[in-house]
Amino acid sequence: MRSAMKRVRKEETIENNGQCSKKQDESRHKKDPFSILPLDLIVEILFKLPAAKSIARLVFVSKLWSSIIRGKDFTKLYLTRSFTRPRLLFVVFCHYIPTQFLQSFSQEDPSSDPHHRVNISPHRCRLWSFSPPVRGLICRQNDTTVIIGNPSTGQFLTLPRVKSRRRGLFSFFGYDPVNDEYKVLCMTVLQVRQRRESRVVAEEHQVFTLGAKQKWRRIECNHDHLPPSLTKGVCINGVVYYYAWIKSEGSLISFDLISEVFNVIKLPEDIQCLVNYNGKIALASFCKLGTLDLWVLEDASKQEWSKVSLLVPSWTDLVVDENLYFKVRGTLSTGELIFTPTRPVRPFYFISFDLKENSAKKVVVEEIGDNFASLEIYFDHVESPMVLSNVS
């Protein structure tokens, strides 16, 4: 009799627990109706949204959606698709209303794409220069303040203040593909006196790895060097390259983001303009018409360079101003060689040279408008859904 009563009570307890669990599930589904959707369907819904900015807003839908969107797997999947749809990214400085904004367009056909604009600053004193975008993110710096931004979502994140009393600061931005990490390299400027001479070098080299609870770390550099003001690095395969002076001689500095080691590469010619040429670092000078010479770094460890001479086709029928000089910007992911004017032109355009077809075309971007003092353009930019998390 007692055993029968215990069995009945146990069955009642199981039934009650089942009812409670069912009620809890129903309550949870009422609070979060999206939790009943399969993971694959959620990802498919996110991929059908028109822009990464729309995806970033959905982190507030539920904890599940937030974990999916913030997850590295989703970001990698989204970036894989974005690399097949490269974009142009403009950093524009306006005339009459002191302001700065970012604007992106389809690289294939700028006029066919609904473009997205992100305003940066309403004050002229806060117009800062940006580093070239790396996997959808950009970096800018003013004094000892460094900011990481995602132009696709319009989100900006201020990093902890660089620990230095010096005001002169250089910063470079890159991506470590082995550890899947974004890093910022900063160096401050020091004036060194040697007997009666004095020279300026960079020291106090520090690195910041993007992520929660990170901080600036001091690293060693055995090469006294100084980058020119406003110099920008080029990140290729986990290495940031930038031009710098060692004493009075121009050199190429490479900083390996994986090992965090500096190396000096001797230049075949003293050329400051660095470009990405078919996945390799190259030196390029200004170009008008005729032969274009590029020095391509074939092997950094052996310091081997090769010289590439290209016969640029005449584009006088594309350009009205025959006195306008152009700057080589490197090659696109499609292999096309890109030239941009050395001074602002309205409407803005650039020249695309198809190396295989030996033909040039003019690409006009009218949607920026004419009211700009200057602008910077970056190629092969990709949209990223990455949500920048608090680093503190």
Rank of each mutant, 00 (worst) to 15 (best):
E322I: 05
R329K: 15
V296D: 05
D293W: 02
S285T: 07
Y325E: 06
K302N: 13
C287S: 04
L289I: 06
S333V: 07
L292S: 07
V312C: 10
L324R: 12
D321F: 03
S309R: 11
L311S: 08
G290S: 00
T316Q: 10
E304I: 13
V328N: 04
K327E: 02
S314W: 00
L310C: 06
W315C: 11
G335R: 03
E322H: 09
V296G: 03
K288A: 04
D293E: 11
S314D: 15
W315N: 06
W295L: 11
D317F: 06
P313W: 05
Y325C: 09
L297Y: 15
E336M: 02
G290Q: 03
L294G: 08
I281M: 03
E322W: 13
A282P: 00
A300I: 15
V308G: 03
E304V: 15
V312D: 13
D299M: 01
V320S: 09
V320F: 03
L297P: 09
L294Y: 03
L283G: 10
V328H: 01
I281R: 06
L283Q: 14
V296H: 02
W315D: 10
P313S: 04
P313I: 02
L324Q: 14
L292Q: 13
I281L: 11
W305K: 10
S306P: 03
E336Q: 05
V328F: 02
T334N: 06
S333I: 13
T316S: 15
D299P: 01
L289K: 12
D293A: 08
A284C: 14
L324I: 13
L289M: 09
W305R: 01
W305F: 06
D321Q: 08
L310F: 08
L332C: 14
K327V: 09
F286V: 12
I281G: 04
A300L: 04
W315V: 05
L283V: 08
L310K: 09
E336F: 06
L310Y: 11
G335E: 02
Y325M: 12
F286I: 06
L311M: 11
V320I: 08
E298L: 15
L318W: 00
L324H: 09
L318P: 00
L294Q: 00
K302I: 15
D299T: 15
W295V: 07
T334Q: 09
G335S: 03
L310V: 11
L332H: 01
V308R: 13
V320N: 05
Q303R: 09
S301R: 12
N323V: 12
D321L: 03
D321M: 07
L337I: 05
L310P: 08
Y325I: 10
W305L: 06
L337M: 13
A282I: 01
F326P: 00
R329G: 08
P313G: 01
S333K: 04
V319T: 00
L294W: 07
S333R: 07
D321I: 03
D317Y: 04
S309C: 10
G335Y: 09
D317K: 06
S309Q: 14
D299G: 10
S306A: 01
S333E: 08
T316E: 11
G330T: 14
L310N: 05
G290A: 04
D299E: 15
V296Q: 02
V320R: 02
K288M: 12
D299L: 06
Q303D: 14
T316C: 09
F286L: 11
P313C: 05
T331Y: 07
V312L: 10
L294H: 02
W295D: 10
E322Y: 03
G290F: 01
S314I: 01
K307W: 07
K302W: 11
S306V: 11
S306M: 08
L332P: 00
